[in-house]
Simulated scan of single mutants.
Amino acid sequence: MKATWDIFCTVVDNYGDIGVTWRLARQLADEHALIVRLWVDDLHAFARLCPEADPQAARQYQQGVEVRHWPVDWPACETAEVVIGAFGCQLPAAYVEALAERSTPALWLNLEYLSAEDWVEGCHGLPSPQPNGLRKVFFFPGFTANTGGLLREGELLGKRAAFEQDAAARKAFLAGLGVKPAPEARLMSLFAYENAQLGHWLEALAADDQPTHLLVPEGRILADLHAWLGERLAVGEVRQRGALTLQVLPFVSQDDYDRILWCCDFNAVRGEDSFVRAQWAGRPLLWHIYVQEENAHWEKLEAFLKIYRQGLSDDAADALVALWRAWNMDRDMGEAWRGVLKHWPQLQTHARQWCLEQATRPDLATALVQFYRNWI
């Protein structure tokens, strides 16, 4: 009998939570032949990532996964053998009661946010006894062997390599989005939260000796883009300022977003899902980390930079760190960007090497499945 898995996702204010859980659910069903239900409280957000989904359907099947609307009034249903509460979301009380009444215990996992902080290894896999006698286990994605790894489909890097080697496929894909970069242009993507430093960065790109074609998917950074331009751009519209060409892209499916990352020479990303996908793209990247109270997110940023910079020369590492700090700490992005350009070839090589190094470790879905097998 195949094990049944329930994944619970609460959409907060962005697409990171549903992005991660949707990728995970698909991979568990596709590569591990598991029976997976994904419970989502906001199907409209889910439909942005899965355009063929019906945001009104209480129950539907998409790409091998049963997708259920997580309603306020919880319906009576059987519990699963493995239950994942994503990112600290609270499971329905009736479901937790049903878990406590099972004749054979279920594995209850709390899938945590991604972090490179030192304490993560010590907390990964630790149980948390609950008042009703159940145990919830903390499961941490991460970048080291003593964590749960990163989401990565088995064929992902092979698909990327084939796409990279097929110039006609890349050209056709970009053309389908209305993108026709000049041959000599550096192609870049920008997916970020609001950022007061955007204008300084755009000024540096506009004044650069090399042309840049910047792709900006629909998102929260558009307000800052429009403020710098002095006008609003609709999806598909293109504007040029000096050496910089700006183009707004529509919100695309996850698979198409991967292809955008693969097409670009540099990717600015945000949150968790796009952050991980940019690493698998093997290109230099810039991470806009989700802001937390009292700047607690800076510790997570510094923890990642500490491990990611390893292998770079001191000068290249300092330039990379300066860029990431500028973007996340409201410092001069123009100066930081010019510093990074001095080390561009080394940063390209390093991004590829980092990707290959992370790919030597088990992916998150495989680690979850193996954890369950060891548990039973």
Rank of each mutant, 00 (worst) to 15 (best):
Ala3Arg: 09
Gly16Val: 09
Gly16Glu: 04
Trp22Ser: 14
Arg37Val: 07
Arg59Gln: 12
Gln63Ile: 03
Glu66Gly: 02
Pro71Asp: 07
Val72Trp: 14
Cys77His: 07
Ala80Tyr: 05
Ala80Lys: 06
Ala80Thr: 13
Glu81Lys: 08
Phe87Arg: 05
Tyr95Pro: 05
Ser103Tyr: 00
Asn110Glu: 05
Asp118Lys: 15
Asp118Tyr: 12
Trp119Ala: 14
Gly125Tyr: 06
Lys136Leu: 01
Asn146Tyr: 07
Thr147Gln: 03
Gly154Val: 10
Leu157Gly: 01
Asp166Pro: 08
Ala169Ser: 12
Ala169Gly: 09
Ala172Ile: 05
Phe173Lys: 02
Val179Pro: 04
Pro181Cys: 14
Arg186Gly: 11
Ala192Ser: 15
Leu198Ile: 13
Glu203His: 12
Asp209Glu: 14
Gly219Cys: 08
Ala223Lys: 09
Glu231Phe: 09
Leu233Met: 15
Ala243Gly: 01
Ala243Cys: 01
Thr245Trp: 11
Leu249Glu: 06
Phe251His: 13
Val252Lys: 02
Val252Gln: 11
Val252Ser: 14
Asp256Pro: 08
Asp256Asn: 11
Arg259Phe: 06
Phe266Val: 13
Arg270Ala: 04
Glu272Ala: 02
Phe275Ser: 02
Ala281Asp: 04
Arg283Met: 08
Pro284Glu: 06
Leu285Met: 15
Leu286Tyr: 01
Val291Ser: 11
Gln292Phe: 12
Glu293Val: 07
Glu302Gly: 12
Ser313Asn: 10
Ser313Thr: 15
Asp315Ile: 01
Ala316Ser: 14
Ala319Gly: 09
Ala322Phe: 13
Arg325Tyr: 13
Arg331Phe: 06
His350Asp: 07
Gln358Tyr: 11
Pro362Arg: 04
Phe371Val: 00
Tyr372Val: 08
Tyr372Ala: 14
Trp375Thr: 07
